[in-house]
């Protein structure tokens, strides 16, 4: 009984701790992204701390609720969006630290949780009773449905491989990925398949965090920020934070699946520092990996292509990326059989 109570308190405290890490880090990532994107566009760009000033400003501004809006849903949507995004982070290992809710959920749960922020955005969009927000919400749903399949296919292909090699493991848990890094267990076919899956997952991430070319739900020049068109002040600030945290979540997921390596096993024989020191080194290395993943799935893609139309987005996800992930699945199947 007492341990139960302790567990609950620990979960609450850990959620706080993880928000304290994820929100500032997400904002910093946004700042770095903006700075790098600006340099790739041949301009200077804002200071790295700009997102912090943006959020500060948004939280000081008046929050306006449109007259025709369903106000409770309209106000609840941003909170739901941020809360659910932070929740996902509780299931993902952060570098050297295992997930806080280890053993309570697996990758399948994460896949389902990932839809909740999008659903919250859709709900907020419909609740704000603006034609632009309605179009944006419809587009968000289309987008959500289109990237779901490649995402699931990616995860299942990898899990299949792990479960075939280590039938005793709980294959769907992310710690299994961490124990058996996929690059180590794959044969030549499997490596090719895994590279394809990595690219698919990077492109799915771009859609998941709604950036160009898949930012059809926000599309500034078409539907004036879509679902967010009526949002202002604190509510918009919360959506902004949720977006920042979601970037961290998606990149942490990719890192956990594809690059679960730590520096410490490599360097321990040579350098001797206390174990908490290694934890810090590994954590910093994890942050570096996150930034690199974010650079490729967000910054680099969004500066080098134009925004797609809705039908083109569906074609890319349901057509090319689904085909690519199925191809990778076949390659990995070959790898398992040989």
């Amino acid at each position: 009984m007492l341990t139960g109570a302790f567990e609950v308190i620990w979960y609450i405290a850990a959620s706080f701790l993880i928000s304290l890490f994820a929100i500032p880090f997400g904002l910093l990532t946004k700042g770095i992204d903006r700075k790098l994107a600006a340099h790739m566009q041949w301009r200077v760009g804002p200071p790295v701390w700009q997102p912090f000033w943006d959020v500060k400003k948004l939280f000081q501004k008046e929050t306006i609720v449109p007259e025709d809006a369903i106000s409770w849903l309209y106000n609840a949507a941003p909170i739901l969006c941020l809360a659910s995004t932070v929740t996902i982070l509780l299931y993902i290992p952060l570098g050297p630290f295992p997930p806080i809710l280890e053993g309570h959920g697996d990758v399948i749960l994460i896949l389902y949780l990932l839809t909740i922020p999008s659903l919250a955005m859709v709900a907020g969009g419909f609740a704000s009773s603006s034609p632009f927000a309605s179009v944006g919400a419809q587009r968000e749903m289309v987008l959500m449905m289109s990237y779901e399949f490649p995402l699931a296919a990616t995860v299942i292909a990898l899990v299949w491989k792990i479960s075939s090699l280590y039938p005793q493991e709980a294959a769907f848990s992310l710690t299994a990925f961490a124990r058996h890094p996929i690059w180590n267990i794959m044969g030549p076919f499997g490596i090719v398949g895994a590279i394809v899956l990595l690219i698919v997952l990077l492109l799915v991430t771009t859609g998941e965090i709604t950036k160009v070319p898949f930012d059809i739900a926000e599309a500034e020049t078409e539907i004036a920020e879509g679902v967010f068109v009526e949002y202002s002040g604190r509510n918009l600030g919360l959506f902004y934070l949720a977006d920042a945290v979601k970037t961290v979540v998606m990149s942490a997921l990719i890192v956990a699946i594809f690059f679960p390596y730590n520096l410490s096993p490599l360097l321990t024989p040579n350098i001797s520092i206390p174990s908490w020191g290694w934890a810090i080194v590994d954590f910093l290395f994890f942050l570096l990996k996150l930034e690199i993943v974010i650079f490729f799935c967000m910054t680099f893609i969004r500066v080098s292509v134009a925004r797609f139309r809705v039908d083109q987005v569906v074609k890319v996800y349901w057509g090319y990326l689904t085909l690519a992930s199925l191809l990778a699945l076949i390659l990995i199947a070959l790898d398992v059989m040989l």
Partner: peptide, 16 residues
């Protein structure tokens, strides 16, 4: 035109 289709890099590049 590049900005309208969400291609901001080309927009900045052309204006430079």
């Amino acid at each position: 035109a590049a900005h309208e289709i969400g291609f901001d890099t080309v927009f900045h590049y052309t204006w430079a």
